[in-house]
Design a binder for these strands. Structure first.
Length: 607
RNA sequence: CGGGGCGUAGCUCAGCCUGGUUUAGAGCGCUUGGUUCGGGACCAAGAGGUCGGAGGUUCAAAUCCUCUCGCCCCGACCA
């Protein structure tokens, strides 16, 4: 391909809206063009890279036994109502607008395709003899992201590979899941991504096991907790750490009475610490939750009614509650209580709650959930349950219970309900400290089980060998293709531009002709171009009538892995120069040898 | 949804506070001619803008006021 016959709109200046490196470089290199917030066009160079990624994904999915199909973007809302996800998705589900009763109001743009595949499999797969089966597609997804950001990393429209496995039983799912997990590792390796697989929170989608594939980078928006010795890695949504050491001294307390301290207006931990002369680590945060008002988890009729249940959660002042953990421990879908509920329970304004005495005010079925690190505190400061007052000297076990007493009916639980922090010990017991790193999620694998196939969902069953209908056991597996591209650029660039890995580079080799007016230079460059192309190398030939410096800058920017420079000076010595964008010395070699050497190198680096 | 910032030429921005010498500017990019030619050259001449939109104040609005739309960042949310 000749540059002058292609379309590569590079720019020298950085558009002001671009903040992260991948976004800036993708714009400058002419890979993408923004049309609206979170909506991008892929220009020819960007599209070539995207298609290379797509091909790698397709090859690995096929070789893992998955079968490609293509499902529609337009989906009937009814399908989503059957699984209760119109509510669960909320604003993420993009609906079409139209007059009341119009078909448009009954249609949405698919953010994912669990319902759609399940419907297909339900219709056509009726016997265990047809299982297992894994169907996948590479499709445009639409999501009403509240805040698109970081260029192509978080968008409202994106390309995703989504696969769905259907198995006869859990053992089959384990096999299907592992196949996908392994295929994902091969995909990221082939794409040249420095990825890690971490334990992940499966979220409202349900399921009992889940891994995310992450690329560590400051541009990411997830946090991964990794132990220094590498024996543990998990998304912070899920990460746990070794339990705190129980202090040796029995916690009977000093016997000292609680002392109330006037702390006017100090509702926040830092403010209180200042007034009390203590540190957050010596405080207990008391958070009041209540069961969620919106029954987002259930579309079934007759779900929980009556007054909302309250849950008191305690964590150390320097820790943060992890809502996923809290939800799991409590078994309830919770939200932070409104001020009125808090005042009613504590008798104080928001910001002055403390655990002492509160437990006795809970009704049967309500809960006090104590973080492990609070259990082992010897004495703590916390809210006094009196507006503008805090207390010091609160002793767990003495001033509030650490286990259920039975008669009251309200439960006490001690558990890990906080986010890990930098320096926590690895949960493996190795004692290695955890470090928090920012990361981009480039893929996610779930074990779904029967969430979509169960009777109260889409009721998708097959006849097992025993002649009885059973729900399919599902798994789902997603890869964000645009994110792979951005993540590759995030992790592989320098001041000059992108450094593509050979496998996903829009072109594999770039020929730069330095003296466009010199007939011999041009004919030599053209000959190398033609022969490389004939050898199956994706080659771009910069035949523009530009100065050398200008061409070199563009070459660095668009980051083609292999560069062959044809110039009058070196040609006078009978050589051309071949070098790699990734670095290292360029080698001089006769034009006649260039094609062979370049072809061999390209093949070697394709992976 | 809360907080902050920004909308002036394809791109980066100045002008706005303090309305009128501005017939709206600069640099990059683009066109034409010339000189240059191994790391984003130079000279000369050009093309290109409903100043995001609507309404208002005023003799007069890019500039002041109101509303509105869009984009970016932080937070909330999030398969």
């Amino acid at each position: 391909m000749r540059w002058t016959e292609f379309f590569i709109p590079t720019t020298k200046e950085v558009p002001k809206d671009a903040v992260v490196a991948s976004h800036q470089l993708m714009l400058r290199a002419g890979l993408i063009r923004q049309l609206a917030a979170g909506v991008y066009a892929y220009l020819p160079l960007g599209y070539r890279a995207l298609r290379k990624i797509e091909n790698i994904v397709r090859e690995e999915m096929n070789s893992a036994g998955a079968i490609e199909l293509h499902m529609p973007c337009l989906q009937p809302l009814e399908l989503w109502e059957q699984t209760g996800r119109t509510q669960a998705m909320g604003d993420v589900l993009l609906r079409l607008a139209g007059p009341a009763g119009d078909w448009r109001t009954q249609t949405c743009l698919g953010p994912t395709h669990e319902e759609n595949v399940t419907e297909i499999v339900k219709a056509y797969v009726s016997s265990y003899k047809q299982l297992p089966i894994n169907l996948y597609q590479i499709q445009t997804k639409f999501r009403g992201e509240a805040r698109p950001k970081s260029g192509v990393l978080r968008t409202r429209e994106f390309l995703m590979k989504d696969a769905y496995s259907f198995d006869r039983d859990k053992a089959g799912l384990d096999v299907s899941y592992q196949k996908m997990y392994d295929a994902y590792c091969r995909i990221y390796t082939r794409c040249g991504l420095p990825y890690i697989a971490v334990e992940a929170e499966s979220g409202p989608i349900g399921g009992d096991a889940s891994h995310e594939f992450m690329v560590l980078t400051e541009a990411g928006e997830d946090y991964v907790a990794m132990s220094e010795n590498g024996d543990y890695a998990a998304n912070t949504e899920r990460a746990t750490c070794a339990p705190p050491r129980i202090s040796a001294a029995p916690l009977t307390g000093s016997g000292a009475a609680l002392s109330e301290i006037h702390t006017p207006g100090a509702g926040r931990v830092e403010d209180v610490c200042k007034l009390l002369g203590t540190t957050p680590a010596h405080m207990i945060k008391t958070l009041i939750y209540r069961t969620a008002t919106v029954e987002a988890t259930s579309h079934r009729k007759g779900a929980a009614s009556g007054p909302p249940a309250r849950v008191i959660a305690l964590v150390r002042g320097d820790h943060d509650i992890n809502d996923h953990k809290l939800a799991k421990i409590s078994g309830l879908r919770l939200e932070l209580a409104d001020p009125r509920t808090i005042e009613e329970l504590t008798g104080a304004a928001v910001g002055f709650a403390g655990p002492q005495g509160l437990f006795d005010r809970l009704r049967p079925g309500e809960q006090l959930i104590i973080d492990r690190d609070v259990e082992v505190m010897t004495s703590a400061a916390t809210g006094a349950n009196r507006t503008d007052y805090h207390v010091d000297g609160v002793v767990p076990g003495r001033d509030f219970p650490l286990e259920s007493r039975g008669e009251s009916g309200a439960a006490v639980k001690v558990a890990d309900i906080r986010n890990v922090v930098d320096g926590d010990a690895s949960p493996t017991g190795s004692g290695s400290p955890l470090r928090l790193r920012k990361a981009i999620e480039v893929g996610h694998v779930f074990k779904l089980g029967t969430k979509y196939t169960a009777k109260d969902s889409l009721d998708a069953t097959f006849l097992d060998a025993d002649g009885k209908p059973k729900p399919f056991i599902m798994g789902c597996y997603g890869i964000g293709l645009n994110r792979i591209m951005a993540a590759a650029i995030e992790s592989r660039h320098d001041d000059g531009g992108i450094i593509w890995p050979m496998s996903i580079a829009p072109f594999e080799a770039l020929i730069v002709a330095l003296d466009p007016r010199d007939a011999q230079v041009m004919s030599t460059a053209a000959k190398i171009h033609d022969e490389l192309a004939a050898a199956g190398v994706d080659v771009l030939y910069d035949d523009r009538d530009e100065r050398a410096g200008f061409k070199f800058k563009d070459a660095d920017l668009i980051g083609i892995p292999l560069r062959i420079v044809v110039g009058r000076k070196s040609l006078a010595e009978g050589v051309v120069e071949m070098g790699r964008r990734a670095g290292g010395e360029a080698v001089k070699l006769p034009p006649s040898e260039a094609v062979g050497r370049a072809t061999a190198l390209v093949r070697e680096l394709r992976g």
